[in-house]
Design a protein around this nucleic acid. Structure first.
Lengths: 218, 218
DNA sequence: CTCACCCCTGTGAACGCGCTGAGGACGCCG
DNA sequence: CGGCGTCCTCAGCGCGTTCACAGGGGTGAG
């Protein structure tokens, strides 16, 4: 799990970084609003911890811009203010949770875990899993920077699987979402197309979980 | 948007109902734990506001049971306690957000809206008992961070047992829930599969209660 | 101590899941 | 009209999974 901490108070930032790393997270720190926005855009983080008072760009504004650009990274906001309206503002402009300073580290951890459990609320623009990249808008797939040509059905299948990396997806679910007619189509189609994808993407990228479905290796 | 408020203090419940209805929500109220659980199960609500201190069944326990039954209704917890560990407990047992009484109505609304925006959490909570971890979504089991590969039947059995850690589960119950045809299948299958699990997870993790069933050591 | 009962486990067989190659139906293009 | 690519069906096969069975061991009651 990769986290981004955007906080300008150096001592607090360092303390957070140390504490979260001890929990097994990979933690990067940005000290200013613009730097944080940039990192959030390109860093592939699983969540962001964001101070409201920042040089260059406030936390509110940062989240608003991120959301306007269709980035749906889970955001946990921190603020020294404790006026209730600030809190409401923070949540309404797109943050997912809110904590007022001083806060307890245990609470921060618990809320962070709850946030990560939920995952990003909506679809990201480009899907990336391992060295696979899939761009829904351009209908392109690359594997380790080599372009892979897929048929429409293969593309739809991979698209669906890449939205659930590491999770088991049943054949029924795939039939429902990738094929329209769930009834009257044998689950064997799925097996066939998984076979096609394996041939094009590499044998071991798609694991089969007998009796349960398939899982895209992360 | 339909909301369920589970709160036993009549005055607070009525105030919440009035306030939320004024915001355009459809609000039902339950006054006891069991009534709330029942309503949450069958009511088709979009979110639930849940007091911790309830007659009949605590809020913690209510959420735990709901999650165990694979219901992923967003839950906002209310509590008079403000110990930080209570808060952490509440979130970890499956609630999505937490507010301590006395709380501001504006904050409640903002958090509720944030909750509704993100919808039901997709990923179920990971089951953890001792050093065993079972992730239903990923269909992965680890024991002290070593991955254990299980067959479908073994997985289903362990899944069921891990939802009742420390409790004695009878063979009949296991046959009913893990195997479909409870009749016409000898209870010996259970013994066989418990044997398989013991071989893979360690000898003393599954205790035999002679004449009663099995118990997963906590 | 003996007996009955419950539980454990090794063996082996049947089943059925998932993989694959072959090939037909359909639409698109030249 | 013929060639081509995609989509899907089908049948056969391999092998892991599931389960029945039987013999042995442990446990508690009398």
């Amino acid at each position: 799990m990769r986290l981004l901490v955007v906080e300008d108070e150096a001592r607090l930032a360092a303390a957070l970084q140390r504490g979260l790393q001890a929990e097994g997270f990979a933690v990067d720190v940005a000290a200013t609003g613009p730097a944080g926005l940039d990192a959030a855009r390109h860093g592939g983080y699983d969540a962001m911890i964001l101070d409201v008072m920042l040089p260059g760009l406030s936390g509110y504004e940062l989240v608003r811009r991120l959301r306007a650009e269709q980035h749906w990274l889970p955001v946990l906001m921190l603020s020294a203010k404790d006026g209730e309206y600030d809190q409401a503002d923070g949540l309404d402009c797109g943050a997912d949770d809110y904590l007022t300073k001083p806060f307890s580290y245990v609470v921060l951890l618990a809320r962070l875990r709850a946030l990560l459990r939920r995952g990003a609320p909506e679809r990201p623009v480009v899907l990336t899993v391992g060295d696979l990249r899939l761009d829904p808008a351009q209908r392109r797939v690359t594997r380790a920077d080599d372009e892979v040509t897929l048929t429409a059905r293969e593309f739809a299948l991979l698209d669906y699987l890449m939205r659930r990396p590491g999770q088991v997806v049943s054949k029924i679910e795939l039939l429902d979402h990738v094929w329209d007619a769930s009834l009257e189509t044998a689950p064997n189609v799925v097996e066939v197309y998984v076979g096609y994808l394996r041939r094009k993407l590499g044998r071991d990228r798609l694991e089969t979980i007998r009796g349960a479905g398939y899982r895209l290796a992360t």
